[in-house]
């Protein structure tokens, strides 16, 4: 039940794009078509769902103050490597993305076809790194981290697909020239974000 609450909270109330501004670059660049938006959204769910629990493990058993206690070595146990978390997280993300790409290519060609070109882009999507950093900041447990990862991805999916659908609708609208494209996208995002604000009234 608590996990379900967390999922609802992460998808709607604290939407990673609309409330935290994470993953904006790809959100803006790839929301022109619904198909590409869907592809990218799926890829983000997938990668966040894997990297969050994985980075949780790294942080818990390798980096945190005293995390190396399981080795039984006094000196190792007293190490605090948490300053390395940024570099290690990004390395993990980059290698997972690469790895997922290889596995999909070999065993699930149709899925690879669908996600294909979006996977490499994800490495530099700040939603992924942000997901891992927030998870550390908020001190989640393993199940919570997993649920958080997947639902943050779903939040991204929801936002980008919604955005793509709206942009498709307004393609032939009469927008002032300077506002066309990026400017209008921002304002629509703002309006969507106002819409999502309403969810914060939900009592969990």
């Amino acid at each position: 039940m608590e996990l379900l609450n967390l999922a609802v909270k992460t998808i709607f109330i604290e939407n990673i794009v609309l409330a935290y501004f994470l993953g904006m670059c790809s959100f803006l660049a790839l929301s022109k078509k619904v198909e590409t938006a869907t592809g990218l959204g799926m890829a983000v769910i997938f990668v966040l769902g894997i990297t969050c629990p994985l980075n949780w493990g790294i942080n818990e058993y390798l980096l945190n103050d005293g995390a190396l206690a399981w080795t039984g070595n006094e000196q190792l146990a007293s190490l605090d490597l948490s300053f390395l978390n940024l570099i290690l997280f990004i390395a993990i993300i980059a290698s997972i993305v690469q790895f997922v790409e290889l596995v999909l290519d070999k065993y699930f060609p149709p899925l690879y076809q669908a996600l294909g070109i979006f996977l490499p882009l994800i490495t530099v999507n700040c939603a992924i790194l942000g997901g891992s950093l927030f998870m550390v900041e908020r001190d989640y447990t393993l199940p919570q981290a997993t649920v958080f990862g997947i639902s943050a991805g779903m939040g991204f999916f929801l936002a980008i697909v919604g955005m793509a659908a709206i942009r498709k609708k307004i393609r032939y609208s009469n927008i002032p020239p300077g506002l066309k494209g990026l400017g209008m996208t921002f304002i629509i995002t703002g309006l969507m974000s106002i819409g999502f604000l309403c969810f914060s009234g939900i009592k969990l």
């Binding site: 103050d65 005293g66 206690a69 146990a77 007293s78 001190d139």
Partner: peptide, 9 residues
Amino acid sequence: PRNERNAKS
């Protein structure tokens, strides 16, 4: 204990 120094709650 070391692991409690930075305990979050």
